[in-house]
Design a protein around this nucleic acid. Structure first.
Lengths: 215, 215
DNA sequence: ATCCTAGGTAGACGCTTGTTTACTTGCAAC
DNA sequence: GTTGCAAGTAAACAAGCGTCTACCTAGGAT
């Protein structure tokens, strides 16, 4: 059943026979691509768990079972690697996309889903605890802008769309620290349907166009 | 060797004027208390601005115009100093205290006030970007528990009070990163009264007792 | 005038960080 | 075989961290 799985580790002779069909036949002997992939995956897991500052390149290399020097050799620097990881993360993108009317509920369900999934969701923990160096702040800001704030704004009618999107972002970004610090037990103890309803109302309050009067 | 100290530093002999006894006759010769106060103030400012991990004890000592060793001598450790700073911060305590019905609006007004005051408010930035070492996480957790979550819970009726308090905490804790990363201009651009109303509705959605369809 | 103590200081300790250098090794082409 | 080159490695680099020790020194008590 697992025949076709691209097992990224341990196999050394497997990837040799997979010679590129159409292109030039050049294939890495010791599979640099696979190593890069392992490093990237390790970085995604660790950054997602502990944030940028909470992870060392040595830890990344160890988890990837690669040499420390390769991290910098292949990705340039720790910050650049962080940027690459961020570029690959786009779960929330799909959550925001859709019909504007259902946006608050989709965000709420996403939030609750993160509670159910436990503390293993990668993205959320990257948002907090990751702005040590100014360079990283830059990378993080660009990501949040492109993936969360701007897509939201495009769905919003009425004035102050950006301010409203930022209010909703407050809930999104606050979820990480709260889950990480206080744990998940207390949130799980509550009825998921009701938590979803509450969060929907919270997001609605942040995002809904101003109600002048009932028109 | 017998040379007099030229004291290139801005000598702190200025604070000697408190030599005359007030009440008890005992007064420190070189005023340890004043030095401790300067260190504590410097720590409060810097931790508030950059969080625990973003500040070094050398920076604290420099800002306080004190020797680095004194930080550890007087406060035990950097983590303990952080705890002392936290213990002195209690603005939000007064915000939460009051009649339960007005709690959401008070929280919202506090949030807006932080926008108006600019990025200089100490507490908020300490909540994110400050959980590097497990020991610090412990200190931070205890503070948040005692000052925010528990006081909130005591004001809440109905089931799942803790989960509801955590949802409200999400907004509180998310505000820091959002303000820090995205700046204040876009939030300031919106009508403060409307932002306050939105936040009030957000906090209400998080905190209000369940409505139980046709209860 | 001298002593004694507490406030203050300089410097080093041991450790960790991200990064780089010099080297070795596997593997395909010759 | 031998060679060439990229993949991979070990070790060191320089800088920064929190902390601690040994040492000065101000200045009231004696």
């Amino acid at each position: 059943m697992g025949m076709q799985v691209e097992d990224e580790r341990t196999l050394s002779a497997r990837n040799q026979d997979a010679s590129r069909a159409g292109g030039r036949g050049r294939r890495p002997r010791r599979d640099r691509e696979a190593t890069e992939r392992r490093i990237l995956k390790a970085a995604r897991d660790l950054f997602g768990e502990h944030g940028y500052d909470g992870v060392t390149v040595r830890e990344i290399a160890a988890l990837a079972e690669a040499n420390v020097a390769l991290v910098n050799r292949y990705f340039g620097s720790k910050a650049a690697l962080f940027g690459d990881v961020l570029a690959g993360e786009s779960v929330i993108r799909g959550v925001i996309a859709g019909d504007p009317a259902g946006l608050p509920r989709r965000l709420a369900e996403h939030f609750v889903r993160q509670i159910d999934q436990g503390p293993a969701t990668a993205m959320s923990r990257m948002l907090d605890r990751s702005a040590g160096q100014p360079e990283v702040k830059e990378i993080l800001l660009r990501y949040l802008e492109d993936v969360i704030v701007q897509p939201m704004i495009e769905q919003l009618d009425g004035p102050d769309a950006r301010a409203r999107a930022l209010l909703a972002s407050t809930i999104i970004m606050g979820g990480g620290p709260v889950r990480r610090l206080f744990g998940l037990d207390d949130l799980r103890a509550a009825d998921p349907a009701e938590v979803t309803d509450r969060l929907t109302a919270m997001f609605t309050a942040a995002l809904a166009p101003p109600v002048r009067h009932r028109a």
